[in-house]
Simulated assay, not measured.
Amino acid sequence: MTATMTQAMVVPAEAAEVVGLPSGGAFTLLADASDTAGALGANRLTLEPGRDGARPHYHALSTELFYVVDGEMEFLLGERVTTVAKGGLVVVPPRLPHAFGAVPGTGADLLIVLTPGIERFGYFRQLGRIAHGLEPFDGLLPEQERYDVHFVEAVAWQSLRGSR
């Protein structure tokens, strides 16, 4: 029998864990899969101007939703790069390679929801340690299945973001 949520979940702002990034941005951890009986996972990501949010990757099991709360973002969606401004929504189906980052000169604030949920708070904590130079990125590679984050090469993204 699959567990289901039986009560509403409320996460006051002051109760959310914040994983700071050295550039001044942060992951705010709102709901992990275990908090929602696997229904979803949710976090907020703030990025400083021009900063990358994620390398090219895909999720084998989940759909990912991005709502741009503020600022302007560049998204890699398959082979296409598109810009999405404040108030815009992006929904990425399973297995579609994607990446994202703040537009140069503009910071960004994103609400990100992954459904069904995967336990990923550990992933965001590890990304924070990597960003601070405390761990190598390669340490994430053995965790791709666990976190349903499968890294890929993307020439279009590298051409756009790597040249800056």
Rank of each mutant, 00 (worst) to 15 (best):
H98C: 01
G128D: 03
Q126F: 06
A108H: 06
I112N: 07
S163P: 10
G41Q: 12
E48F: 02
Y123N: 02
F100V: 14
E119F: 02
L140Q: 03
S163K: 13
L45Q: 01
S163E: 15
A31T: 08
S163L: 13
A54T: 10
L76W: 15
R161E: 10
L40T: 01
P142A: 01
N43S: 00
A31D: 02
R146H: 14
K86W: 01
G107H: 12
F121C: 12
V81E: 06
L127R: 08
W157H: 03
R129P: 01
A33N: 10
E135C: 13
L29F: 01
L140A: 01
P97I: 13
G78T: 07
L65G: 00
D52S: 15
A37R: 10
P104K: 11
L61T: 13
E79C: 09
Y67R: 07
R129K: 13
G71H: 10
A60I: 06
P116E: 06
A154Y: 05
G53M: 11
G139T: 03
R44E: 13
L127Y: 00
G162Y: 06
V155D: 08
T106C: 10
P142I: 01
A37D: 05
L114C: 14
R129H: 02
L160Q: 08
F151K: 07
R161C: 06
D35N: 15
G87D: 05
A154R: 10
E153R: 14
H132W: 04
V69F: 00
V149K: 14
F27M: 03
S159W: 14
T63R: 02
V113L: 15
V91D: 05
A154D: 08
E119P: 15
T36W: 12
L111K: 11
A39L: 07
G107E: 14
A156K: 11
D52G: 15
V103L: 15
